[in-house]
């Protein structure tokens, strides 16, 4: 299931939903991304996340679909917040269940790497010097490319 929303999420609730009736699953891996204080050398006070309604959901669905084709997964949950966020706010949640841990670890990382490169979200940071758009990071592109070898 995929959600793009302004409101916060509770990792406990999400975890319980993932393991409910998961009788064949032996592993759950979850990831949470947070608003960090320093980015690209700037001191960050908060950020605003913009997205492309419709395409963002479609893109996330396609990423999850690709992960399901590569690994035997049970449930997959992706939540991405939009709008105004403060320092240390939760931004993104990815939770994956699988029969064994390796698939769950790999799929969770794969989904994050693809999300960072393909899902249409844009971050604008509020710093002491004013507001500025976050620049795309080449490191994220390399992280995705390793899955394409």
């Amino acid at each position: 299931m995929i959600s793009v929303q302004q409101q916060d999420f509770n990792i406990g609730d999400e975890y319980h939903a993932l393991i409910q009736d998961a009788y064949s699953e032996g592993a759950v891996v979850t990831f949470v991304g947070l608003v960090r204080d320093i980015n690209q050398g700037n001191s960050v006070k908060g950020l605003t996340l913009e997205h492309y309604p419709g395409m963002t959901e479609k893109s996330l669905k396609s990423i999850v679909q690709q992960a399901k084709q590569r690994w035997p997964l049970g449930k997959v949950r992706v939540i991405h917040r939009v709008g105004k966020l403060k320092l240390s706010d939760q931004i993104v949640f990815v939770g994956v269940t699988s029969r064994h841990r390796e698939s769950a670890f790999l799929a969770c990382q794969f989904i994050m790497d693809y999300l960072k490169n393909q899902a249409p979200f844009w971050k604008k940071e509020s710093t002491e010097k004013g507001e500025s758009w976050v620049e795309f990071n080449d490191k994220d592109q390399k992280a995705m490319q390793r899955w394409q070898k």
Binding site: G33, H51, Y52, H80, K116, P120, W122, V134, D140
Partner: peptide
Amino acid sequence: IAFFPPVTGG
């Protein structure tokens, strides 16, 4: 059709 800069979510 949409045009936009490289994406920076996550």
